[in-house]
Every structure is written in structure tokens, then in C-alpha cells.
Design a binder for these strands. Sequence first.
DNA 1: TAACTATTTTACCAAATAGCCAAATACCTG
DNA 2: CAGGTATTTGGCTATTTGGTAAAATAGTTA
Lengths: 99, 99
Amino acid sequence: MKKEIEQKYYREAEIMKALAHPTRLFILHSLKDGEKCVCELTDEIGDDISTVSKHLLILKNAGLVEANRKKNWMYYKLSAPCVLDIGKCVINKVIKKKR
Amino acid sequence: MKKEIEQKYYREAEIMKALAHPTRLFILHSLKDGEKCVCELTDEIGDDISTVSKHLLILKNAGLVEANRKKNWMYYKLSAPCVLDIGKCVINKVIKKKR
DNA sequence: TAACTATTTTACCAAATAGCCAAATACCTG
DNA sequence: CAGGTATTTGGCTATTTGGTAAAATAGTTA
């Protein structure tokens, strides 16, 4: 595998890795109608807030969400809402096939 | 997070996990024009054949590729070619943003 | 059946990931 | 500045992942 190709797929894989966790997928979909603070997401998810915060960091590092602070609260929103359509085709085909 | 939702995203995350490795992304794109045997893919990739075989197993378990044997060779092909378009939008936006 | 080729599986190690708690930080408000 | 709320970070443990080499399996062909 050539170096350039390897790098291209490495970068793509990073994004996929960020998407490869149920909680993070949930967060993204939960943000579809606009920004939410960490505490809102934490309530919805039910994990420790530090866990949620770390998931958000992973999504942010992948470039999938953006953060901005308002007073005490940190609000997160989708940076590319089209992320919600990701793999729709594949997911439908493949999940149907499995059951 | 409700049980049903959790399960839905768990299943989706499994697919994303399968996509979350450079070698596996390379394999999928390498199969775009049709099936290939493990040895061809191994040549292209340059890893140990057992490593490539494991990546293929992961892709197969995720339902992304299908295998069929012809004589000594095991041929793999895409089960849903639309996997190649996965996250095109996100990848373009997000990767552009990063550099 | 025996020898051979291609692939998969097993055993093992190193590195990465996910989760929680506790401590640290950031910001607001009195 | 002191006290309070929201979030992030660090440290720890347990689990998962990715890689290799060696052994096992599947199928072909002499």
C-alpha cells in the first residue's frame, strides 16, 4: 500500500473511529436540531459526565462537532450535519441482511 | 439512553468499527471493480497474510463483503458497493477543515 | 493417499480504548 | 476574593484491537 494512499485512508479511518461508538452516534443524532450543553447530553445518556465529556472531545478532535461556551455551559453542535446521513445506504442494506 | 436506541446505535457502531481501519478502507476500495483473492489483496497491502485474513473476517462479520471459494482461492467482493461513498460529504468537509 | 497451495485459526504480546472516581480548571455571581 | 456550578483532565483498571508466527484446515492435483 503506497504511502500517500495509506495516509489518505488513515485520515478517513480516524473519522470512522470517532463514529464507531454507540454513545457517540447517539450524541450526533441528538444534536440534529441544534446545540446542547454537556449536562443535557449527560442526562439523556446516563453515563458519568466525565465519560460524556471525553466522547465529545473525540468527536471534536475528529472535526465532527464544534464547542462554544456560554456562561458556565459548554454547548456542542454538529459541524457537518450531513454526518447524520452517513452510511445510510450501507446500514440499511447490511443490517437488513443480518437479521 | 433507552434500550432500543442503544441497540440501534450499537449495531451501527459495529459497522463503523469495521470501517475504522486504514487497511480495511483500502481493501473495500480495492474491491470496487470486482472480486479479488486474499493473496492479491495481501500483495497490494504488504502485511502478513494472516493479518489481511483477519481484516477480511471483520469486514465479512460486519456484512460489508462476501466470500466465495474457487479452487484454492478465496475471493472477496463488496456486498454493498455503496459503501465506497460512505461519509463522502463528511470526509470532504471535515478533512478540508483540518488542514 | 500424499504432497502442495491458499487461507484461517490459535496463542501470545503490545498498544489503544472505555469507563469511573477524584482532582483540577473555567467561569459566574455575590 | 469566596463560593458555587459546569466541564475537563489525570489516574486507574478492565477490555478490546492489531500484529506476527506457528499450527490447523480446505481444497487441488499428482
